[in-house]
Each structure stands twice: as structure tokens, then as C-alpha cells.
Amino acid sequence: MIRLFAIAGGLFFTVAALWSFVTGAYVAATEGLGEETAEYAFHEHPKDLHLASDGVFGKWDVNQLQRGYQVYKEVCSACHSMKFVAFRNLADLGYNEDEIKAEAANWQVPGIDPNTGEATTRPGLPTDYFPSPYPNNVAAAAANNNAIPPDLSLITKARHNGSAYLYSLLTGYQAQPAALLERFPDSKTPDGLHYNPYFPNLNLAMAAPLNPEQVAYADGTAATVDQMSQDVSAFLTWTAEPTLIERKQTGLPVLGFLLFATILAFFAKKQVWAAVKPAKRKD
């Protein structure tokens, strides 16, 4: 009886796996074969972005991360929060203790009036997290054409190919192509929205946030839109995974140890079983 139940269970899971495979293959084969939409026809995949942190042997470009932080501070922070990053984390970018204290003090964070107990604001401390520019989501939506700006702490992990996606989005603002309006006359970008082929539905509430020379880099780097987009994308790659490089550096020795242990186990097995001869077959 137990054997029958086991066979029935195996058949059930086999049929379920085959059904999932067949339906998945059908969807993949027929995707996009129906009525074509403007989003499907004109949405573009992210551009190539090569950061110093890419690859197995990648490392943070600290100068670029500092430039990216400057772009966030002077441009992006007007609308976007970064609630999972503390000021003290800036030590990873090469800032010393005094510089971090000064940076934190330049920000106003939520606080409590010790005399009245009412909510107020105060200069930030190294232990505080980057504050939101809005008191709540209602205020954020009201200030941004009914769209709530997303928190940027983990944005490059929350989007597919996030670093390249962010870079492409920031550099991708343009006028709607004439070909789009010819094929899809009803797809004109609504008032208050902005065309960007790297955004999934092609139109987003955020206007192009970057303009040439919008920030003045301390290291003299030319602040082109492309350069600022790369820098802030690198910075937000760090905020999303600040231990990325340490993880890679740890992973290589671990893989080396596992390879060595596997070889050692193989030779140990050969040594242990060397004196055991295989039994002769009886025909």
C-alpha cells in the first residue's frame, strides 16, 4: 500500500512538472504575438554600464562613489529618501569622523522637542539615517503629480539589472519618436508626464533631473549628464549592497578551499578503498 501511495505521489509531481513546463514554454513562445502595444514595441533594454565594482575581482571606485553621493545630496535628495543608509556608513566612502559629523549636521532629521514633546526637526547625527524630504506619502504624492518618489536605498536591487537601468533612465529622456505616434496615435505622452523608453510604460512623472554642470565636482571631473548618471548609479549600487566587494573577496578563498577539500576527499577515498578488490561476477 505504501508503495502505491509513493508511486501515485511521484506521478502527481511528474505531471505537475510537465504541466508547468508546457504552459511556460507556450507563454514564452506566444509572448508578444498578440496585439502589439507601444510599450512592447518601443521599450528599450538598459544600456551597457561598466562599473569598477563589476566582475569577480571588482573594487569600489571611492572617488566615483563620493561624486555619486554629491549628486544624490545636491539633486536626488530633493525628492527621494534613502532610509536604510546611515550617515556613519559614509565612512566606507573614505570620509573621516569629523567629515561625517559635519555632513550629518547639514541635514535636518525628525526629532522631539524636549520641552513640549512635539515633533520637530534637528541637525542630524552620524547615527541617524538619511531623512525623507516629505513628512508622509500624501505630501510626497501632492508634490509630484500624484506619484510617490521611491526610496533609493535599495533601488538597484529592486530593479532588474538595476545599475544599468538607473543609468539608462537618467540619460534616456527624449521627445517621443514620430514612428511611435504614427503606429500608435493614442499613445501621446500625457500632460505632466515625460517620455523615457527605458521606463516600462514609457512615461513617468519624474522630469529629467540632471543638467550639465548641475554640480561642481571637487576633483575637477566634468559634470556631464552622462558622468553624473554613472556616478550616482555607482553610489546607489553601493547603498544597495555595501558589502558587495567583501562578499566577492570572501567567496574566492571559500571556492578555493572547497576545490582543495574535494581533491583531498577524492584521494582519501582512493587510499581508503585501494585494498578492496571488486567482487568477481558469477555467470
Rank of each mutant, 00 (worst) to 15 (best):
N137W: 08
L152S: 01
Y129F: 14
T156V: 13
S187Y: 05
P197W: 03
F199H: 11
T224P: 06
P126F: 11
N136L: 04
D219Q: 04
T156K: 07
Y165N: 06
N146R: 10
L154E: 05
D186P: 02
N161T: 13
P212A: 09
P150A: 14
A147T: 12
A139D: 15
K157S: 15
D128Y: 06
R183Y: 08
Y129A: 14
N146F: 07
N201T: 09
A222C: 04
L210F: 08
G192T: 11
A147Y: 08
P209C: 11
A143P: 10
A175T: 02
A140H: 06
N136S: 07
V225G: 02
V138W: 02
L210A: 09
L154F: 14
Y165Q: 08
T221M: 12
D219A: 02
Y217D: 10
Q214T: 13
I148L: 12
A142L: 15
Y217H: 06
P209M: 08
D226S: 15
Y198H: 03
K188N: 06
S132D: 11
L166M: 14
D186Y: 03
H194I: 01
D186R: 06
Q214F: 06
A164T: 11
Y134C: 00
L180Q: 04
A175F: 01
N145P: 05
T189N: 12
R159E: 12
Y165P: 03
L170N: 05
T127Q: 14
P200M: 12
T171E: 00
P135I: 11
N144S: 12
L193W: 04
A223I: 07
L202M: 03
P131L: 10
P185Q: 11
P197C: 10
Y173G: 00
I148A: 13
P133M: 09
N196G: 03
P209E: 06
P149L: 08
F199W: 14
A208N: 13
S132C: 06
G192K: 01
A141P: 09
R183P: 10
A147R: 02
L152V: 03
T221F: 12
L170V: 15
N211H: 13
A164R: 04
A141C: 13
P149H: 08
Y217A: 10
A143I: 07
D191M: 05
Y134A: 00
N137Q: 15
D191Y: 05
Y173Q: 02
F184W: 07
D219V: 01
Y134P: 00
H160D: 13
A175I: 00
A216V: 12
E182T: 10
L204K: 02
P212R: 10
M206N: 05
D219L: 03
D191H: 04
E213T: 11
Y198V: 01
N196D: 03
L166G: 02
P177Y: 04
L170Q: 08
F130Y: 15
N136F: 02
T171K: 01
D128H: 10
L210Y: 05
A158H: 15
L152F: 02
A207M: 11
Y129N: 11
L169R: 01
A223F: 09
A208S: 15
L193F: 12
V138P: 00
L210I: 13
A141G: 15
P150C: 12
P131G: 10
F199S: 11
A143N: 09
T224F: 07
N144K: 07
M206T: 06
S153P: 04
D226G: 07
